[in-house]
């Protein structure tokens, strides 16, 4: 079955094929557009809406829509809209960066394990199993609490605990692909290990990794929000999770201060999930979801 998939995908332009599949999924296309707008907002927003998110611009807890503040003000009288716009940058950045860290670790470990097999695979998969068993949030809480809640540390703490799924998927793909004819053929024609791994096998292993990576960005955003909710956050930057965390105690009387950043996270992660679904359908039409 997989053989068949490979050959068909290789026969035609795979990207065009995938794109055709993707655009047929209306929800995914809509999500892509929304996410694109959110990204534009994150990049250009601070210039279009130049209010400093740290400035106290009005009295605290001005409800949404009043006094010219679309989303109201927080406990210090800061403009919630400005905070959410600026928070988008940090949240998306952490999401992307943490996902990249974990994809890097996961692909490397999975690829090496799946390619070399033997004791290398044994050691690497035991390590993976171990990280799978470790409760991720607890471990990153310890890291952030001990070494400070800087953005870099938070990103690292999220990335370093989230790579196991990627490693497993990559390894499974490598195990499958390394036995395929075209790999055997290039091995016979004298291709080195590195070349085989990165230019022959990896490109063909990409579809499920891409799907998983997309989902991982969403998970990382949620993860950062969770850490911030518990107070493990950098007070010198605004992120969506951080807005929720610091407004948590006002939830009963000014619930909008938590609802809006919560919605921002929700919509973003929802879009990412929908895009992930679309990618999944487009890239692995017959592969079972993982």
């Amino acid at each position: 079955m997989s053989n068949e998939v490979m050959t068909t995908v290789r026969a035609r332009s795979p990207l065009a094929e995938a794109w055709d599949m993707f655009v047929r999924n209306h929800a995914a296309v809509a999500a892509l557009i929304v996410l694109f707008l959110i990204t534009i907002g994150a990049v250009a927003g601070p210039y279009l809406y130049p209010t400093d998110p740290f400035d106290m611009v009005w009295s605290p807890f001005s409800p949404p829509g009043e006094h010219g503040f679309l989303l109201g003000t927080d406990y210090l009288g800061r403009d919630l809209l400005a905070m959410i716009i600026n928070g988008a940058r940090v949240s998306l950045l952490i999401g992307l960066a943490a996902a990249m860290v974990s994809i890097f670790i996961g692909v490397t470990i999975g690829a090496v394990a799946g390619f070399y097999r033997g004791w290398v695979e044994e050691v690497l998969m035991r390590t993976t199993e171990f990280f799978q068993v470790l409760p991720t949030l607890l471990f990153s809480m310890v890291l952030v609490a001990l070494f400070g809640a800087s953005l870099a540390m938070i990103t690292f703490a999220i990335g370093v605990v989230s790579w196991t799924a990627v490693a497993r998927i990559t390894r499974a793909e490598f195990l499958r692909i390394r036995e395929l004819e075209f790999v055997i053929a290039s091995r016979a024609s004298g291709a080195g290990n590195a070349k085989l791994m990165f230019t022959v096998i990896l490109p063909n292993a990409m579809p499920p990794i891409i799907v998983q990576s997309a989902l991982m960005v969403g998970t990382a955003i949620l993860f950062e929000a969770g850490l911030s909710f518990l107070g493990l956050t950098d007070p010198n930057v605004v992120s969506w999770g951080q807005i929720i965390g610091s407004n948590r105690q006002y939830i009963l009387d000014a619930s909008y201060t938590v609802t809006f950043p919560g919605l921002a996270i929700f919509i973003t992660v929802l879009c990412i999930s929908l895009i992930g679904d679309g990618l999944n359908d487009a890239l692995n039409p017959k592969l079972r979801q993982r």
């Binding site: 952030v144 609490a145 400070g148 800087s150 107070g231 956050t233 950098d234 007070p235 010198n236």
Partner: peptide, 11 residues
Amino acid sequence: VEVRASADFPT
């Protein structure tokens, strides 16, 4: 003014 984060109390 830079706010210095100390995630836990002992710090």
